[in-house]
Design a protein around this nucleic acid. Structure first.
Lengths: 227, 227
DNA sequence: CGAGACGCTTGACTTACATCAAGGCAGGTT
DNA sequence: AACCTGCCTTGATGTAAGTCAAGCGTCTCG
């Protein structure tokens, strides 16, 4: 059966029996998207949700002046746009591919039926939404209670942790990072320069080396500030 | 059985059979809280979730300087603190009673079992989390993409709509409203004064009268600004 | 090769909002 | 009545970060 292996590898579907995975494979729709292409706009009706098979997708909001705030960036294996499946039906935000991507689309009615039949699928989905909630709470906290340098420090530490090394490469463009951190490219550039000047990091292009991890942690927590 | 009627009236549990409501009533714990009292702190371990029976509760974050951001304010019938039930186990934020309140507490293990047995309970919970996600996305949008006057305008319109009249009373203290809108009491006070001066509203103490609904809507949408 | 286009950086300026400080007003207590 | 205390308002000042504008390296493509 088509895509069965790839579907089985999606964390959201972990713990499901072979039979249930086959049910999923029955309803899935495969979709190719080019970099820069819009997947949906906020306000569009949501007829199902997606899982990233390959590539990278951003979920974002725009204001009337054209300023953008990125809410999430999702990579392989991560589901997105589940909200309209369970509440209301329109998307609260827009989605666009940051790279050429392949998506699995699961139509709503069939998926809701599967959830009814399989409690472990429901619990997995509850866990996904709960983690998402946690992420968003943290974004609100960052935007409202921390300054831009603290947000950047937190992001750098997170990336370094994810990639498992004190030296790493930013995996998104700096302009996109600015939008994710809720600031402008100019401000991001200036803060990065200050972090270098004050010895917290080295930076060449997208390559970052963390020199003072505990200093960055203090910045990120908001207990210390740049001079 | 104790509390059965009140539990049956909670929207989260709508559509459940009598038998299932009785199961819930078996596991519920009743809890009285005084105004100002803390229910839990962020980082505490979450052993279950709550539903407000009466009173009012705020969910909030603090930064090291003591600045507060309110994430939600919940009233009768609304569940909160579900996140640690399904993902991780510690609370992402803190909770405090804004009024003397009565809470129903549902211990995690028993509740998770009920979810396994009753798919409609799972779907109800998914709907609750999805709506919560929508709310938080909207909060991020407000904080990052709108100015304080737009946030206040949106709040006033929402309250007016909720209470079903162009004249209404703020149901929380202005200081708390400032924290909910991500601003300071001083700034809130000034913006309110400007809204009055420019003829959008009348305001005496906590009493608000909306004079120019469409003007406020334009402010809230960010297409127009205060002069 | 030259010309764009794009992404990033840097400098000069502007601004929304926070902070600090003082005072007003209402409700409750002695 | 005098006096808190809590909440709100108003004024003066400070600042983080946005905006505008110019310039630079890199890559692509005619």
């Amino acid at each position: 059966m088509k895509f069965l292996n790839q579907i089985a590898a999606i964390p959201l579907f972990s713990g499901l029996a072979e039979r249930q995975l086959e049910d999923l494979a029955m309803i899935v729709v495969d979709q190719q998207i080019r970099r820069g292409q819009t997947i949906f706009h906020q306000g569009d009706e949501g007829t199902g949700f997606y899982v990233v098979a390959s590539g990278k997708v951003k979920i974002y909001k725009l204001n009337p002046d054209g300023k953008e705030q990125i809410l999430h960036i999702f990579g392989p294996g991560e589901p997105f746009a589940e909200v309209p499946v369970f509440a209301g039906q329109c998307f609260p935000a827009s989605a666009e591919a940051l790279e050429d991507s392949r998506l699995f689309f699961f139509p709503r009615p069939a998926f809701v039926n599967l959830i009814r039949l399989h409690p472990s699928l429901a619990l997995n989905m509850l866990a996904v939404l709960s983690r998402r909630l946690r992420q968003l709470v943290s974004l609100v906290e960052d935007l409202s209670l921390k300054e831009a340098p603290a947000r950047l420090a937190a992001y750098l530490l997170y990336q370094s942790h994810q990639q498992g090394a004190p030296v790493f490469e930013l995996d998104i463009l700096k302009g996109q990072l600015a939008s994710l951190l809720g600031t402008s490219p100019e401000t991001l550039s200036r803060i990065l320069a200050r972090l270098v000047r004050e010895g917290f990091i080295e930076s060449v292009g997208p390559r970052i080396r963390i020199l003072d991890k505990s200093g960055l942690q203090e910045l990120a927590a908001g207990v210390k500030r740049l001079s």
